[in-house]
Simulated assay, not measured.
Amino acid sequence: MNDQTTNTPMHTKTWTLRLDLFEEGDVTWVHAVLDTGDNRLESRTEAHRNPHDPAVPEIGDEYAAGRALVDLGHQLLRAGMTDADANEPSLHS
């Protein structure tokens, strides 16, 4: 068995994620922005407190931010699939 390694230089990137949270009454909104350097993805989500639950702002923050992060994750997966399809070698060349 021939064990070959490539000597390609390591490539690093920094992606920036910003979450802005806004609260008003029983509603928490989040505006999330993911800047990859190549793309910018945005998500706007919200969480509504059940009127029968105690007012604990941290819980609304967690729900709204979690939803924004899940949405950004779905957007990243769709972008990856689109990019992979666009870069797939054509079978009809």
Rank of each mutant, 00 (worst) to 15 (best):
F22I: 10
E23K: 10
A84T: 02
S43K: 06
M81P: 00
L77M: 12
G25C: 08
L69D: 01
A55G: 00
T6F: 13
N7A: 14
T28K: 01
V56E: 10
M81R: 08
L76S: 09
G25V: 07
L34P: 04
T5W: 09
N39G: 00
D85F: 01
N39S: 13
N39E: 15
N50K: 02
V56Q: 06
D26L: 09
W29R: 05
G60D: 10
Q75D: 01
L34F: 03
R18D: 11
R49T: 05
G60Y: 14
F22G: 02
N87H: 15
W15V: 14
G25K: 08
E23Q: 06
A86W: 00
L76N: 02
L91D: 09
E46C: 12
A55I: 08
N7H: 10
D26K: 09
T6Q: 14
D83Q: 09
S90R: 12
G73P: 13
E62F: 04
L21K: 12
Q4T: 06
A68Q: 14
L91R: 12
A86N: 07
G73F: 13
R49A: 08
S43N: 07
E88W: 10
G66C: 05
S43G: 13
F22H: 12
N39W: 11
E58N: 04
N7W: 05
A84I: 01
K13N: 11
W15Y: 15
E24A: 13
D3C: 06
G60K: 08
G73S: 15
G60S: 01
L17H: 09
P51V: 08
A79S: 03
P57G: 02
A55C: 04
A32T: 13
T28N: 06
W29C: 01
N50G: 00
A47D: 08
P54F: 03
D71C: 06
V30P: 06
N50I: 00
L72D: 03
A79L: 15
F22W: 04
G37W: 04
A86E: 09
D38F: 11
H74E: 09
P89Q: 07
D38L: 12
T16Y: 14
D85W: 01
N2E: 13
L69I: 02
H48N: 03
R40N: 04
V70M: 00
G37N: 04
E46W: 12
P51N: 06
V27N: 01
R18I: 10
D85K: 02
D38E: 15
Q4K: 10
R67F: 12
S43L: 11
A32P: 13
W29S: 01
P54Q: 06
S90M: 05
E23R: 13
L21P: 03
A84F: 02
G60V: 13
T6H: 13
D83T: 08
D3M: 13
L91W: 06
N50V: 00
V27I: 03
T16V: 14
D20G: 11
N7E: 14
H48M: 06
D85M: 02
R18Q: 13
H48F: 04
N7S: 11
T8C: 04
V33I: 14
E24H: 10
H31D: 10
L91A: 15
L21H: 02
D35E: 11
G37R: 04
D53K: 14
E62D: 02
A64T: 02
A55K: 10
T5V: 15
P9I: 01
A64G: 03
R49D: 07
H31K: 04
